[in-house]
Structures are given as structure tokens and as C-alpha cells.
């Protein structure tokens, strides 16, 4: 269909690719990271291990969907810290005083 007699190419008009600048607020929201933080905090606060595990899973999702390593690593690291802390206190920490009685 695009068969024309002359060559459509114009090497002189070629411009190299310039990546468009995207403002940080225009980036898609990292829902997974957000959910991970919430679950992580809940897991630590209520000593609820399922919540910590879910936080870990959403951390994994957040890491898997990461586009810009420097930008997104902070939130993911925070969520990861929370979830790991929750798990550690859950499995290795002192038994809950509330549940013993």
C-alpha cells in the first residue's frame, strides 16, 4: 500500500529520540506499594501475621512493577521493613500478653 515510486526516507530530517520528561506526580500510582505499607503497619501494630504476609506479597508486586528504581525503592523498602518486622516479632518475639490469659 505504501509503495511509492520514490524513497520516502529522509536521513537529513532524522532526529534522535528524546525521552519526554515526566513529572513525578504524573507517574502512575503504585497501589501495590501503598497496600503493602498499610498491611505492613497493620501487621506490626496488631501482631497479625496474615497481614504481614500479605504485605510481603504486595511488596513483591510493587517490586515487580517498579519502573524507576531510585524513585520507588523508598516506599517499597519501607513496606518491606514493616512486613519483615511484623513477621519477626510474630514468630520470634515474646508471646502476646493479651492472648495468654
Amino acid at each position: 500500500m505504501s509503495s511509492h515510486a520514490n524513497d520516502p526516507r529522509q536521513p537529513s530530517a532524522a532526529r534522535p529520540y528524546v525521552a519526554p520528561q515526566i513529572a513525578p506526580q504524573d507517574l502512575p500510582i503504585d497501589y501495590a506499594g501503598f497496600i503493602a505499607v498499610i498491611f505492613g503497619v497493620a501487621g506490626v501494630m496488631f501482631r497479625y501475621k496474615l497481614s504481614s504476609w500479605l504485605a510481603l506479597i504486595f511488596c513483591a508486586q510493587s517490586v515487580a512493577n517498579m519502573r524507576n528504581v531510585e524513585n520507588d525503592l523508598k516506599q517499597v523498602m519501607m513496606a518491606m521493613m514493616f512486613s519483615l518486622m511484623g513477621l519477626i516479632t510474630n514468630y520470634f518475639g515474646p508471646p502476646r500478653p493479651g492472648k495468654q490469659s
Binding site: 505504501s2 520516502p8 526516507r9 529522509q10 536521513p11 530530517a13 532524522a14 532526529r15 534522535p16 529520540y17
Partner: peptide
């Protein structure tokens, strides 16, 4: 390739 002289994100 037949339509554009520069392909890809590099300098060609």
C-alpha cells in the same frame, strides 16, 4: 526499515 531512515532510540 523501508520508510524511516533512523530506527530505534540510538543514534542510528
Amino acid at each position: 526499515e523501508k520508510n524511516f531512515s533512523l530506527l530505534g532510540i540510538g543514534d542510528g
